[in-house]
């Protein structure tokens, strides 16, 4: 009952929270002392990056590990890993795009070869490689195993990307929310809107993941059905 209700409410709640985020971000929060109205990207870019680099990529990697561990091996894990990685690829792309849009007016350039930007780009190529690997294999079990191994190797890049701003001098700013001493450097309503955006985009991820998962199940069913039909047709031909 509760599960059903939460499933039904996930979509509307996500949309409502996103709408609230945009309203707060575009109209209610004040412009920044230095950045002026450019600061409004703060309510989109970090949230998209959070979903793309950590939530969805992480979900995919955890599901891959669970698939490789014999006790929890199941088609469900494989599908979750695949669907989450697809969402991740889209969100990392959006991260790079929104980052560029922010970078041009603030830094003065669309792109810089600093550690954070480069490692994010490499992570995107990893995600795209994963999707290519999925398409290249027809045998479901082989595909699941290979892509799970690939996802785990790709996961090494996530901590590198996250800590790049601490380990090296980067043009990209340091940690905003997860600072080492726990001090937030964002003021008042800007901070709360930032948190809201992180939450709303996380919900968006789960919503997208659920929709994509259902699609994958349907696709598998259709494939199985078409196989049955083809077999039946062969049999009918044989009878004649």
């Amino acid at each position: 009952m509760i599960k059903q209700l939460s499933q039904r409410l996930l979509g509307p709640v996500t949309l409502a929270l996103l709408a609230l985020t945009f309203w707060l971000g575009l109209w209610v929060t004040p412009p920044d002392r230095i950045q002026g109205n450019l600061v409004r990207l703060l309510y989109i870019h970090p949230a998209i990056a959070w979903v793309g680099l950590y939530v969805s990529f992480g979900t995919s990697v955890i599901a891959s590990c669970l698939y490789l561990w014999k006790r929890t091996r199941s088609t469900i894990m494989d599908r979750v890993a695949y669907c989450a990685m697809e969402v991740s690829a889209i969100f990392i792309t959006l991260t790079l795009i929104t980052g560029s849009i922010w970078g041009r007016p603030t830094w003065g350039v669309w792109w810089a070869w600093d550690a954070r930007l480069t490692s994010t780009a490499i992570l995107l190529v990893f995600a795209l490689g994963y999707l290519a690997l999925r398409r290249a294999n027809d045998d479901p079990e082989l595909r699941a195993r290979r892509s799970a191994v690939f996802a785990i190797i790709a996961a090494i890049n996530v901590p590198i990307d996250h800590f790049s701003v601490d380990w090296w001098h980067t043009l990209h700013q340091g940690a905003t929310v997860f600072t080492q001493n726990g001090n937030f450097l964002v003021h008042g309503s800007m901070l709360w809107t930032l948190f809201l955006s992180l939450f709303a985009f996380t919900l968006l991820f789960f919503w997208l993941l659920r929709a994509r998962y259902r699609l994958e199940v349907l696709r598998d069913q259709r494939y199985a059905a078409s196989l049955d039909e083809a077999l039946a047709q062969r049999r009918r031909e044989g009878v004649h």
Binding site: L123, L128, A132
Partner: peptide, 18 residues
């Protein structure tokens, strides 16, 4: 990973370059 010689030859660069 890319299928050990049987997979498409185009897959290997995509997977390994990153």
């Amino acid at each position: 990973l890319s299928g050990g010689g049987q997979g498409p030859a185009t897959l290997l660069p995509v997977l390994s370059f990153p």
